[in-house]
């Protein structure tokens, strides 16, 4: 399908994205300013919900901050299920204070009745793999151990992420399986990057995006290179290429038609099914990478939100 006309109209209202800056710091400043503009165009701040912030140590790595978004305006008296969420941004930009992420967390918490634990993992290239994965795992450990004290139910936990955050979420899920095996009941991966060797990209989408395929691969490859430490191979940080995908939690994947990373998400779904995991994948036609974040823009972005919320709600039964 052609790109969703509502997205085109919205992008026109937001205006041009800033040019890609050379340095990571400047790139982040630009991204945050652009996100602010998207947020103001959306005029969609998300419902007021109770939040709580924590920063914890991660042995051997830099500390990590996370924010709990509760479903209601007050911290609940009875524990609620929790869902660890990892934002996207090519491992280099993004954060839980970006207004569109903040708004989407609020919506998801309020609409699902599940607390969102938004993990503010460290960004590349200053911090590289496996820092982000260890930070995510540390937050999971902390939630399991301290659940009762923050009104969360440590027996009803889920995990998920978007784009690069989907990669980190899937890596944390694998790490957890091989370490403490805390019971994660669901994994939700949105336009995830699962193969940092860039061999799973679906470059047939390049034409629709009006970008040459080699350029897409090159650009995404630089993001992976900046994320990976000099000595480590891309394989290690690619959930799709893990030695085993058995015994992972039920997984729901969402891909966008006009996104080369749809190849990553759809191959991961097939690999999980082949390993006996209860996994499914739906491709949303007419959407682009990350367009789903702006919930009210179109019928399809709302459907996407409803799909994620249905997955979160499954934690409540």
């Amino acid at each position: 399908m052609p790109i969703d006309p509502a997205l085109v109209a919205f992008d026109r209202r937001v205006g041009k994205a800033p040019r890609m800056a050379r340095g990571a710091v400047e790139r982040r400043q630009n991204a945050l300013a652009f996100d602010q503009r998207i947020f103001e165009t959306l005029a969609f701040s998300g419902p007021l919900v109770a939040t709580a912030e924590h920063t914890i140590d991660v042995p051997g790595f830099v500390p990590v901050r996370f924010r709990i978004y509760y479903p209601g305006t007050a911290v609940p008296t009875a524990p609620v299920p929790a869902f660890l969420s990892f934002f996207g941004g090519g491992f280099q930009i993004g954060g839980i204070d970006y207004p569109t992420y903040d708004a989407s967390y609020r919506h998801r918490a309020a609409d699902s009745g599940v607390a969102i634990v938004a993990v503010d993992y460290a960004l590349a290239p200053e911090q590289r793999y496996p820092t982000q994965v260890e930070q995510g795992y540390a937050v999971l450990q902390w939630i399991v151990r301290n659940a009762a004290s923050v009104s969360l139910d440590g027996a009803r936990l889920g995990i998920g992420g978007l784009s690069s955050g989907g990669n980190i979420a899937a890596a944390v899920t694998l790490l957890n399986r091989d370490r403490a095996a805390h019971p994660l009941r669901i994994q939700v991966l949105e336009v995830p990057s699962t193969d940092l060797t860039m061999r799973s990209l679906d470059l047939s989408t390049a034409r629709a995006l009006k970008v040459p395929g080699f350029l897409l691969r090159y650009f995404l490859g630089t993001l992976a290179r900046d994320y990976l430490p000099r000595c480590s191979s891309a394989r290690e940080a690619s959930p799709l290429l893990a030695a085993s995908l058995a015994a992972l939690p039920p997984t729901r994947i969402l891909t966008a038609e006009l996104d080369p990373l749809r190849g990553d998400g759809e191959k991961f779904a097939a690999a999980l099914r082949a390993a006996g995991v209860d996994a499914s994948c739906v491709r949303y036609l007419g959407l682009t990478h990350g367009s789903s974040l702006n919930i009210p823009v179109s019928g399809s972005t709302r459907r996407w939100h409803a799909d994620v919320v249905a997955a979160l709600r499954s934690l409540r039964v």
Binding site: E257, E266, R273, V282, R283, G299, R303
Partner: peptide, 10 residues
Amino acid sequence: TDAAAVRGIG
């Protein structure tokens, strides 16, 4: 028309 499509992968 307000129309969209989704594809069930696999």
